[in-house]
Simulated assay, not measured.
Amino acid sequence: AVAELEQPGGLGRVIADGAGHLERIVEARDASPEELAIGRVNAGLYALPAPEIFARLAGLKADNAQGELYLTDAVSGAARDGRRVQLVSLADPHEALGVNDRLELARVHRLLSERKVRQLALGGATFLEPATTTVGAEVEAGRDCVVEGGVTLLGRTTLGAGVTVRAGAWLRDCRVADGATIEPCSVLDGAVVGAGCRVGPFARLRPGAVLEPAARVGNFVEVKNATLGAGARAGHLAYLGDATVGAGANIGAGVVTCNYDGTAKHRTTIGERAFIGSDTLLVAPVEVGADATTGAGSVITRDVPAGALAVERAPQKTIEGWAARRRGRREKSD
């Protein structure tokens, strides 16, 4: 098989006779300047007769610039001896590209990504900046998806219809249902995102994260091996690990499920419509019941019954005139 390349690089050049059959194959290091100017290259795919080819391989000699045995010399020898060698052009010339260094590897990686973007775009997805988007071979995207620039989609990631993935997001092995939005610079790995959810910006969903429909995970929220029920919200600056959060619950800023005791992981359960106040630490294993509330800054170590309020913090102490007394002490010390 042969291909015509604009930049054939170090690939062997194929010299054809007037009838379009093989005359010889010349490796790049052995080629003359005129031969190097030829764009037709050897794609390295052959259909060869046995046992004839084995006899020709046995007669190879390393009399070339690299001091190697060229398998292509066996094919060239057959042509020289009068055997007609048919040249078959590849439908996609890029299939002939070789990878001999990191730059060539980057080139074929980009070509494969562009090929996948084209396939998905022709199927109804929109890629606003294809040149800066990386899409793996197994990725699927539904109609009317919008993928902005700088996005990376890897593994078996699937995007439902009408999904929006904003600039700089990174997804691997994720399932994102219809109408969900992944905001900029979010990182999702092995996560399931339900219909109508919003994730980010700057959110992280680790393996085992499941967001049920219309759940919301905001900026700087990390979710690991945890489920957020339908309509549950964790707006910002929270860690939810090894947890189950009921539908409609609200997770305040700075909430942490303290799931690791130094030896084993433990689960936290938060009931439907529960309100977890900002900066609450939930020391697992612990359960907060449906419609329960925790006061801001509390460290919750015991279960909270449904509908109850749990507050755990030292009473506030206010000292009047503190600033004046402190200034006085400073003036005396000076």
Results as ranks from 00 to 15, higher is better:
3 A>H: 05
4 E>R: 14
5 L>N: 05
11 L>E: 02
12 G>I: 02
13 R>P: 14
14 V>H: 13
15 I>S: 12
16 A>Y: 04
17 D>L: 04
18 G>W: 11
18 G>L: 07
19 A>N: 06
26 V>T: 07
29 R>P: 01
30 D>R: 05
30 D>N: 11
33 P>I: 13
35 E>T: 13
36 L>Q: 14
41 V>R: 09
46 Y>E: 04
48 L>C: 06
49 P>H: 03
54 F>R: 02
60 L>T: 06
64 N>K: 04
65 A>M: 09
66 Q>Y: 03
72 T>I: 10
72 T>F: 13
73 D>I: 05
76 S>C: 08
76 S>V: 03
79 A>M: 11
85 V>K: 02
86 Q>N: 05
87 L>R: 01
89 S>N: 04
92 D>A: 10
94 H>W: 03
102 R>P: 03
102 R>D: 06
109 H>Q: 09
110 R>L: 01
110 R>N: 08
111 L>N: 07
111 L>D: 08
112 L>M: 11
114 E>L: 14
115 R>V: 13
116 K>V: 14
121 A>N: 08
122 L>Y: 12
123 G>D: 04
123 G>I: 03
124 G>F: 13
128 L>Y: 13
129 E>D: 12
130 P>W: 06
131 A>Q: 15
131 A>V: 07
133 T>S: 10
135 V>W: 01
136 G>S: 12
137 A>H: 15
152 T>Y: 02
152 T>L: 03
154 L>N: 06
156 R>I: 00
156 R>M: 06
157 T>L: 12
159 L>G: 14
161 A>G: 13
163 V>H: 13
164 T>K: 14
165 V>R: 00
171 L>F: 06
172 R>A: 10
174 C>Q: 14
175 R>D: 07
175 R>E: 09
181 T>Y: 04
181 T>W: 08
183 E>R: 11
184 P>Q: 01
185 C>Y: 13
185 C>H: 15
186 S>N: 05
189 D>Q: 15
190 G>R: 03
193 V>C: 14
195 A>I: 12
197 C>I: 05
197 C>G: 13
197 C>F: 08
207 P>Q: 08
207 P>V: 10
210 V>P: 07
212 E>R: 15
220 F>G: 05
221 V>Q: 10
224 K>P: 00
224 K>C: 02
229 G>I: 12
230 A>K: 10
232 A>C: 14
241 G>P: 06
245 V>G: 05
246 G>W: 06
249 A>M: 10
249 A>I: 04
253 A>E: 07
254 G>Q: 14
256 V>Q: 15
257 T>L: 05
260 Y>D: 09
260 Y>V: 11
261 D>V: 12
267 R>Y: 04
271 G>P: 00
272 E>Y: 00
273 R>Y: 12
273 R>P: 02
273 R>M: 06
277 G>A: 12
278 S>C: 14
284 A>W: 07
285 P>E: 04
287 E>G: 02
287 E>H: 12
287 E>P: 03
288 V>P: 09
290 A>P: 09
293 T>D: 00
294 T>M: 00
302 R>Y: 01
305 P>V: 00
305 P>E: 01
305 P>H: 01
308 A>G: 00
311 V>A: 14
311 V>R: 13
311 V>I: 15
314 A>D: 06
316 Q>A: 15
319 I>R: 10
320 E>C: 09
326 R>T: 04
327 R>S: 01
328 G>P: 03
331 E>H: 09
333 S>R: 14
334 D>C: 09
